[in-house]
């Protein structure tokens, strides 16, 4: 019998702790597949965030570092600067990257660090129980904006790709949404391209992945995918923002 689907070598044979239907695991798998396809597993050093993906180091079978909340781009910088031949990625949520770690991501991007960031935008602080994130949509309820986010009270959601696109350091910035078949293919392709850009050694690359959090949205996994498509995509347009 022909084997058509198997666990990537870069993925550890363990059960993940994510909620049913959560896209974190799907994106992990895509990263592992890309690392395998590029044949770089033995050069990879990944940096995990503080957030639901904090245990990513248990799910990957490549070298991994656990960073403090928001500091992954600085940790990745430290690794890449002393090991220029390594392939370094960070994996970060929206609280991690766009709130507490805003300075670190902007400056890593501005320096054109030869690293790749996979940015999971799920509009919420999943791990700590669904508090407002910097990417929570206007009107969206959270445990710390229970009546819905109001612009003049909680401010506006941040569009990270557009923000970073003003800098000269990034060579690849894309936003994708793996919420349907086409979106899954595009997400995998964008992640692969981002890693390939790093291998070119010319600058910083980031893929913003619009993700669901069925648990904090309090909807079914299927409905959470629809929610991303109907509510997030209009505010966070998909596409490649920088490709040079």
């Amino acid at each position: 019998m022909q084997k058509v689907y198997e666990r990537p070598e870069s993925m550890a044979d363990v059960q993940m702790s994510y909620c049913p239907g959560c896209l974190h695991g799907t994106v992990h798998r895509m990263i592992a597949e890309v690392i395998d396809e590029l044949g770089v597993r033995e050069q990879v050093v990944g940096v995990c965030p503080v957030g639901c993906a904090v245990f990513m180091y248990e799910y990957m079978s490549c070298d991994m570092i656990e960073a403090a909340h928001g500091r992954a781009p600085a940790v990745a910088t430290g690794v890449k600067r002393v090991l220029p031949d390594s392939v370094v990625f960070t994996y970060q949520g929206d609280g991690d990257l766009a709130a507490i770690g805003t300075a670190e991501i902007i400056h890593a991007a501005a320096r054109g660090e030869r690293i790749t960031t996979i940015f999971i935008n799920n509009t919420t602080y999943g791990m700590t129980g669904g508090q407002m994130a910097p990417t929570t949509l206007l009107g969206q309820k959270s445990t710390t904006c229970p009546t819905g986010r109001e612009a003049m009270r909680e401010g506006f959601p941040i569009r990270v790709c557009e923000l970073l696109a003003t800098l000269d350091g990034p060579i690849y910035l894309a936003r994708v949404a793996p919420v349907n078949a086409a979106g899954l293919v595009k997400t995998k392709n964008a992640i692969k391209k981002a890693f390939q850009k790093q291998l070119e050694g010319r600058g910083f690359s980031l893929v913003e992945v619009l993700c669901n959090c069925p648990t904090q949205l309090k909807v079914s996994p299927i409905d959470s995918l629809k929610w991303v498509e109907e509510n997030m995509v209009p505010y966070y347009p998909l596409g490649e923002f920088v490709d040079r």
Partner: peptide, 17 residues
């Protein structure tokens, strides 16, 4: 670095390497 927070985190990365 862009701050002391970042500088010590870079040290963390380089030490890990």
């Amino acid at each position: 670095a862009e701050s002391e927070l970042a500088a010590i985190s870079m040290v963390y990365g380089a030490a890990a390497a």
